[in-house]
Simulated scan of single mutants.
Amino acid sequence: MSRMIMNLKGLGALSIPRVFFNMQLISKLNALKKLKNDEILHIKNRLNYYNKINDFFELKKIENVEHSKLGENLLKNTSYSFDFYKVSKYFHKDLKINKFFYDCSSEFLNTITKSRPIDSKNVILKLDSRRHFCFLNDKNDFKDKVDLAVFRGACVQQNRIDFINKFKDCKRLNLGNVNKENRSGYLSKEEQLKYKFIISLEGWDVATNLKWIMSSNSIAITPRLKYETWFMEGKLIPNEHFLLIQDDFSDILDVMDNALTNDKLVKNIIKNQNEYIQQFLNPNIEELLGILVLAKYFYYSNQMKLDNFVIELFDGI
């Protein structure tokens, strides 16, 4: 979806009186009653992963964090705000939140963010989804791809700069620093899928490309993951969902060599990564989860009451 279409859809949703969506909240939550036990368990596990709040708290202002009502600042940082509105529109406009709608590499308690350090307690929602949740239909088998690794990304962070400098002359790695000032080395996602390995390096927070790599028949190569989003990167298992390399990248060629001679490893990773993607493909479940993340937030901040069948999903009860 282009940014223009995203903005038009977002503005269209904002033009509908909020009370229309508020009236639908009960029916949205009642959808839980129609789900199977395994679906309920899946939702419960993800809900409490995204929102780890399990005690009542007083919502206070936090330094560097926006403290506002749901009905305020609806057009601020639009890619985040439009995604937020998709689920927050079902709640009353006067409910208050703490939110940080930018790349986030710090812990902010009781605050809604797109990303967080793994094992921290920021409340995660599916934000900036146009950029981050892009899945591909890869028709090329791993065996038919080029025996090389590719990387394209904006290299302004030190870890990415170090990587490019270290391997700029390596013939087995097709590397490119692609930013607003330098587009000459640009490769589309489809062109990168011609390679067996695609290098994924975190930036200000998560690596945007990890999600679409895992929807393909190529394999991601990455150092230890430090950050996570709605994709639950903290649940990914090294050498089962991606190939792990050292933080200094020193073993990347050895890791590639091992994978190229280990069919079992390759097939297992591709199978696992493609299966992992499946849980994010049901739009109804994705919306319901977003609503529940907020409902739990408002419940524990003493701003709304909920029926017991919803409260029973919360870990702290």
Rank of each mutant, 00 (worst) to 15 (best):
Lys76Ala: 14
Glu286Val: 11
Leu313Trp: 05
Asp251Lys: 02
Leu8Ile: 14
Val123Ile: 13
Lys226Met: 07
Gly153Arg: 00
Asp55Cys: 10
Val266Ala: 09
Arg46Ala: 06
Asn274Glu: 03
Gln279Asp: 02
Lys36Pro: 02
Asn179Ile: 12
Phe108Ala: 02
Phe197Leu: 08
Ala13Phe: 11
Tyr102His: 12
Phe242Val: 02
Arg160Cys: 11
Ile124Val: 13
Pro223Ile: 00
Asp144Asn: 14
Glu63Val: 12
Lys235Met: 13
Met304Tyr: 03
Ile112Val: 10
Gly185Thr: 07
Tyr299Pro: 01
Phe142Trp: 12
Met6Ala: 04
Ser215Val: 05
Lys76Ile: 12
Met1Glu: 12
Lys271Thr: 06
Lys33Val: 11
Leu25Gln: 04
Ile43Phe: 07
Phe82Lys: 01
Gln24Ile: 12
Pro17Thr: 01
Phe56Thr: 11
Met6Glu: 08
Pro117Trp: 04
Phe100Gly: 06
Leu193Thr: 04
His132Ala: 06
Ser216Leu: 02
Tyr90Met: 06
Asp55Arg: 15
Lys226His: 10
Met232Thr: 03
Asn177Gln: 04
Leu313Ser: 09
Lys99Tyr: 14
Gln158Leu: 14
Cys104Gln: 07
Tyr80Lys: 02
Met256Pro: 08
Arg3Trp: 14
Cys155Gly: 07
Asn258His: 10
Ile269Ser: 10
Ile16Tyr: 00
